[in-house]
Nucleic acid binder design. Sequence first.
DNA 1: TTGCGTGCAAATGATTTGCAGAGAT
DNA 2: ATCTCTGCAAATCATTTGCACGCAA
Lengths: 154, 154
Amino acid sequence: MEQEVFKDMLRKKGLKVTNQRMLVLELMAERPGEHLTAEEIYDLARQSCPEIGLATIYRTVQVLVDLSVIDKVSFDDGFARYELGGFNRESGHHHHHAICSRCQKVFSFKGDLLDTLEQALLDTEGFMVTDHEVKLHGYCRECREKMEEDQDGK
Amino acid sequence: MEQEVFKDMLRKKGLKVTNQRMLVLELMAERPGEHLTAEEIYDLARQSCPEIGLATIYRTVQVLVDLSVIDKVSFDDGFARYELGGFNRESGHHHHHAICSRCQKVFSFKGDLLDTLEQALLDTEGFMVTDHEVKLHGYCRECREKMEEDQDGK
DNA sequence: TTGCGTGCAAATGATTTGCAGAGAT
DNA sequence: ATCTCTGCAAATCATTTGCACGCAA
């Protein structure tokens, strides 16, 4: 059970197992692939724990990030966002995001296609890559279809 | 002369050519490859124009970004940063950044190695990429050497 | 018990905005 | 003359922090 693993991670770091921490973990675990803001997590958390404070959410996601349970990502809309396990144990890298410029929807996908680039960087510059972060901007299928319709409509 | 091109770009958009706008352009043009915060640009600008306001800097960089003269980038340290022409007219893409986790220095380089990835995304998901943003995290040569020394020292 | 964790409210700090005067066309 | 731009100060707003109490160990 995931919960026990998490409890051990907390204890191993000398941190306490609290209802709030378990609740936020649960919320995130129920929503793989989603990119939630602190405020969104706060709203979800209040449904089962109305007295929880926003500051606790901020402090808890920081703990979860430190434990590598969730990742902090930004799509430059003014909010930090958090997502479950973007980190792939096999590749040792985080997955990528494609953001639609029209509907702002985010598509996640894995990709080890930077390996050659990273090897070249080590060879030529001596820079050793430990992690990467890729954001693609463009238009998703749905929006491209809508944009064509708008074009035809004229 | 670059200056005239810029003036035409402003006029074409119905914007006015002001000393402040020319000054900020000049500062950025003198520093290719640097990633300046608004505050840093402000400090540089005040050297030749002490009465300039920080708000003007923010408004001016926005204009420059809109004209694609500079790019806004973030290295997640709490500041937006601006750099001259990260956009490559040939590839139609922005260049990439490698950030050292130890000294925070930023290394820029071009790379069209995402082309296959982007083609695959279009084929499988229907997502058409218009631009990409790649941030690599790791350790630069200098820091790696220092880290080895520290290791040896023990 | 002994602190760490929490909730609340206040503080922070980068960025934005309202407004009246200055400057560009 | 007209209307945008600028400088200043105040506002904004996500995130952080101080503090007293509550709860995990």
